[in-house]
Every structure is written in C-alpha cells, then in structure tokens.
Simulated assay, not measured.
Amino acid sequence: MALTLHLPTLTLVVCLVLVTAAALMTFIGMTQRVYRGFWWWVTAQWLTALSPVCLLLQSELPWLLPLSVLLALQWPLMMLAGLRQFHGRVRFPLPGWMDALIPALGTVAYAWIWSQDPDDVAARVAVFSLFNVGGYLYAMWQLQAIPGWRRSRHLKTVHLFLLGGALLQAPRLLTAMSNWGLPLSNPDHIQQPAVLLGLVVAVTVSVYMCLLLTYERTEQELLDSHRQLREMADIDMLTQVPNRRHFNEMAALALRLACPGGSTLMRFDVDHLRHFNELHGHAAGDEALKLVASRARDLMRERDIVGRIGGDQFVALLPDTALRDALHVARRLTRQVDETRAQRGHPPVSLSFGVVRVEPDETLDLALTRAERALERARRHERHPAGHEAAQRA
C-alpha cells in the first residue's frame, strides 16, 4: 500500500522541526563561545523556518508564495556567507555581494511566472529547482577556495552535503521541466512532499555541521594554546633555544642513546655581559645573546643539542664527537659570531668556552660541573680576545 503524505500537515511538521533547529542554534550561540559567521548560520536557519510558514498562510495571503521561495533559496547562500566570515582571511573567487544574486534572480523569475499563469505549477517548480540547484553548486564552488578543505573532515562533509542538496533537487527539476506548461491532475507529482522531508534532514545536518565546525575551531585553538604553552615551558623566548630544564631532559636522553664516553659537553658564555649592557644598552645585549644562539644552532648537527641555562650562559651537547672536533666547533662559533657582528655593525662580543668529554657512566650534572670549571680556567688564562677555549678531562 502506497504511503500518502498530506502536504499541509507535512508542511506544519517541517515548520516545527525547523523552528526547533533554529531555536537550538540560537541557544547555543547565546550560551557558548562562538566565532564570526555563526550568527549568519543562525539567521539562515530562522529564515528557512519562515518558508513553510509562508506556505501555510499563502492561501490567505497569496503574496507570501514568492516570499517563501526567497526564504528557501537563501539557505545555501547564507550558509556560505557564514563560512566567509568564519574563514575571514580566505580570498574567495567572487565577492560576497554576488551571493545574493541567485536567490534574488530566482525569486524574481518565480514571481514573474506565477503572475503570468498561477496554475502552471510545473514552470514554477522548475524555476525554483533550477535556482536552488544553482545555489548549492555555487556555494560548493566557493567553498573550495578555503585552503586545506580536503584535510578537514567537517569541511569535506559540508562540501558533500551541498552536493547532495543539488542532487536531491535534480529529479524534481527534470520532472518539472518535462511538464512545463501542461495541466496537472496531481500537483504533488511535481511538488513532491518527499522534498520537504529532505529539507528537514538537510537543516538538521546543517545544524550539526555548524556545531562541528565551531568545535573544530575551538579544538584547534586549544591545541595551538597547548603547543605555545609547551614552547614557553621548554624554549627560552629570547634566544629560541631550549631552556635549562628542557636541555637537561634532551641531553640525558641523548647520552643514553650515544656511545658511552663518546660525547662532548661544551659550556660557553658571553664575556662581561653586565658591563656590555651598561656600555651599549640592554637591547644590544639581547641582540648579542640572540646572535650567539643563532650561530650556535646553525653550526650544530641535527642530533646536537644547544641550550641557554642562564643569563649569559649556554651549553651544548655533541654526541659521538671527539674533544678536538668540539674545540673546532668552538673556534668556528667564535669566528662566525665575530663575522656576523662586523657585518651588522654591532658592538664587539667575546666568548669563553669550557669543553669536556663526558666519561662513561658520568651523570650530566657532573659533566656540567667539570665544564664549568674548564670555563673558569679559560677565563683566567685570557688566551684570545674573541674567545677562550679550555678542555679538562677527569
């Protein structure tokens, strides 16, 4: 037995469902943190909910029929307007004002056909379906301008959803065009109440997708915040190298993985930084620290670890590196700092080094202590104006 749907009753049910969806979106927007574009989506939901209301009242007020068309056609374009705001930095192929052309032209065409022959249902449905399909495809095309939309499962779902909306209208469009200008014994054959059910599903899914896009943005911001906090906890903000705690963590792990007794630890300081700051200013002192850290990072291998453990104090662990090779790195660092300083016209900077071999089964703290003593002896010897090197073996 075929299932018969009473169109006015179905329209009333659709109206109630749409109002409920719009009210839910409004409640979420008023009680939760939302982003730019969310209220465009809410507006689209409310305007869509008004469309079946106009259909219910059009027998009393005929002019509500073309208004219901406008309210139905606006939905994909208003959703697109929300996406434009949500992704405010994206440069879309066409400006936002052109989004309004499709529902405006569709409404004008529908109203004109309706005024010429109110009984030509097929022609009106064909025009409505044509512009509705155009709106879905237009929104889908614009959405593809969002960078990385293929990597976002939510944006891909919106894309497929818009494509599904266009495909849902396609059979209705073909049927209406084939009956253009012909009298119909059963207008429901063209109007297809099942399309109203599809509208309910579409709006329900769209509410869900709007929320998912909002939560996806919130989740990404939380991940970015956690990453930034982690960087602030691990990285020295001035020099962009690991701080003392993070250096100790990475160096301890590197020593466990390296060949016992084959690693070298290098302590190096900027000489007389306090006097340098008094003479040239703290900004110049900060630039000197950043220059030393930058040149040290450039010289180090990927497996080497360099960190800042104090105001003017740096340390580097060179796994599987002989003592003479580490001393060569120290000389190169001194030379590169001096060359870069001269190129930039910065005040002269001198460095002192203490280099030791990490003995088998020696703790990192003990090796750092020996490197500190080696650094103090280098300072006392004053062997080179641009950088003093000393090596001590236990």
Rank of each mutant, 00 (worst) to 15 (best):
L168T: 09
A170N: 01
A170W: 04
P171S: 09
R172T: 01
L174S: 12
T175I: 12
A176Y: 02
A176Q: 06
M177T: 14
M177E: 07
N179R: 06
N179F: 02
N179C: 05
G181A: 08
G181L: 09
L182H: 04
L184S: 01
S185R: 13
N186P: 00
P187A: 06
P187K: 02
D188A: 11
D188R: 01
H189C: 03
I190E: 04
Q191C: 00
Q191K: 02
Q192L: 07
Q192A: 10
Q192I: 01
A194Q: 06
L196A: 12
L197S: 11
L199M: 15
L199A: 14
L199H: 13
V200D: 14
V201T: 10
A202M: 13
V203K: 01
V203L: 14
T204L: 15
T204Q: 09
T204G: 15
V205E: 03
V205T: 15
V205S: 09
V205W: 07
S206C: 12
V207P: 04
Y208A: 13
Y208K: 09
Y208I: 12
M209P: 09
L211R: 12
L212I: 10
T214V: 14
T214F: 05
T214N: 15
Y215K: 13
Y215T: 15
R217G: 03
E219V: 13
E219S: 12
Q220G: 11
E221M: 13
L223C: 04
D224V: 02
D224R: 11
D224A: 11
S225T: 15
S225Q: 13
S225V: 09
S225A: 14
H226P: 05
L229D: 15
E231C: 08
A233L: 09
I235W: 03
I235D: 02
D236G: 03
L238A: 03
L238E: 09
L238S: 04
Q240E: 07
V241M: 01
V241G: 06
P242I: 08
P242Y: 07
N243K: 03
N243P: 06
R244N: 02
R244H: 11
R244Y: 05
R244V: 05
R244E: 03
H246D: 04
F247R: 01
F247Y: 08
F247A: 04
F247D: 03
N248I: 00
M250V: 10
M250D: 11
A251R: 09
A251V: 10
